[in-house]
Design a protein around this nucleic acid. Structure first.
Lengths: 108, 108
DNA sequence: TTTATTTATTGCAATATTACGATTAATATT
DNA sequence: AATATTAATCGTAATATTGCAATAAATAAA
């Protein structure tokens, strides 16, 4: 079917999964790496740097924007894509919180 | 095309993405939640608890095993699935390291 | 206003993922 | 040995994702 049954999971489970899913593509990791390295950027630079077609980069940027980890400000003909520091921290904390659940030792 | 161009990304970018991708489905988050809560479990319990068909759970377990975050030990007719504590920590550290790159404030 | 420049959107082909019924494999129990 | 129990695998349908060419939209520059 290819259709995730979101309704049988908790909101937290769906949220963690949604965040992880967006991070689950090397192009999007590369985009974040690049933006973090530069502290600011425009889409054109990403196309040159990463080596995927412009529509593909645009699509990945859209998904990153969807979870709020980056934000874009229009500057003339180009768009300045930046990390949303607050949202980034929030996402980091949420993932960390989930990964910290496994505090005590396990059986085997 | 549906085919990720892994060869144009760094090994680290591919690795982070692969880890995140596995965490990018609520069923797998729910499975981890359940195993962590119980400290040990068998597949049958998961099927009852989560509400997906047995082959579906089995498939998700396989993907979690693929990145090493869980391990399964055969016990008679059933399999005891547990968190691989070392691998879990490793994964946590890798994600954290990536998410800690964004240390300084950004432009906008 | 025309022409560039830059990013978004549309449409589509190829591949991947999700989910499950049916079946298989492997061990326990009777 | 026959039967139950449990999990893996196979096959398949439905949907999602990835990537790109073509095009549109929006602003800047001439």
């Amino acid at each position: 079917m290819g259709l995730t049954k979101s309704e049988i999971f908790t909101e937290e489970q769906n949220e963690i999964a949604a965040i992880a899913k967006v991070l689950g593509h090397p192009a999007r990791i590369a985009i974040l790496d690049f933006i973090i390295k530069l502290k600011s950027c425009v889409c054109g630079d990403l196309v040159k740097d990463i080596g995927l077609a412009q529509p593909t980069i645009s699509q990945h940027l859209k998904e990153l924007k969807k979870v709020g980890i980056i934000k874009g400000t229009i500057e003339g003909t180009s768009v300045c894509y930046c990390i949303d520091d607050n949202k980034f921290k929030e996402i980091k904390n949420k993932l960390n919180k989930f990964l910290s659940k496994n505090a005590t030792e396990n059986c085997c």
